[in-house]
Amino acid sequence: MASKKNININLKIWRQKNGNVKGQLVDYKLDNVSTDSSFLEMLDQLNEQLVSQKQEPVAFDHDCREGICGSCSLFINGRAHGPDTGITTCQLHMRMFKDGDTIYVEPWRSRAFPIIKDLVVDRSAFDRIQQAGGFVSVNTSGRTIDANTIPVPKENADKAFEAAACIGCGACVATCKNGSAMLFVGAKVSQYALLPQGKVEATQRVMNMVRQMDEEGFGNCTNTGACEIECPKGISLENIARMNREYLKASLK
């Protein structure tokens, strides 16, 4: 591929044995990192090195490594998913860094995302928000009406898709100075609000999801827009505005 080059880097990685003890940043040196490697492959390389020195490897969440599962979650050099936009950490490549760079690697920081170990956090708060209303109450019998019975304007379908493209990684919360989850919730509320199938339960959905969101201990949105910039899927702030509208409508009912 384009650049065949190796670099040496310094890492400052958050190490924490579990949620009950204190953690700290630990310095590591890693040499011969291919700039074609992804950031997680670089961490693999570090872990290989640590394990062969009989040290504990760095724990981090990752799975699909193609930017869609939403598992990976690192705060790199002060930014969620690192110094590039429109990507997850697994899509961040080492060519974004220079030889000799010092790289800070920290977990998502949020009261609602407690640390499990090292860089691994518990994001089940998102699951609970979804459980509070992120669905259409339709039985899975398949005996619904034909899929083409209700036409959906392409614009709405496209917008619903753009909102539904959220991967639930939590970068919005991690990057928001308030630790707010409104982009995540707004995206889910929007997806359903834009489709005729979702309209039936629109009132309860937005009330319940927002209530759950507040109970989980996320902060409040102050419209800084950082979430939109750092969202790997480019979910728009428009979705938060739509949720605000939906919530107002629902509250006045």
Partner: peptide
């Protein structure tokens, strides 16, 4: 046989499939 039901089911669940300008899938 059941393939068609899957699409019906998913649309009913709010899965945003791609659509044409006429609003059809």
């Amino acid at each position: 046989e059941v393939s068609g039901n899957i699409i019906d089911q998913c649309v009913a669940q709010g899965v945003p499939f791609a659509r044409e300008y006429g609003g059809m899938l």
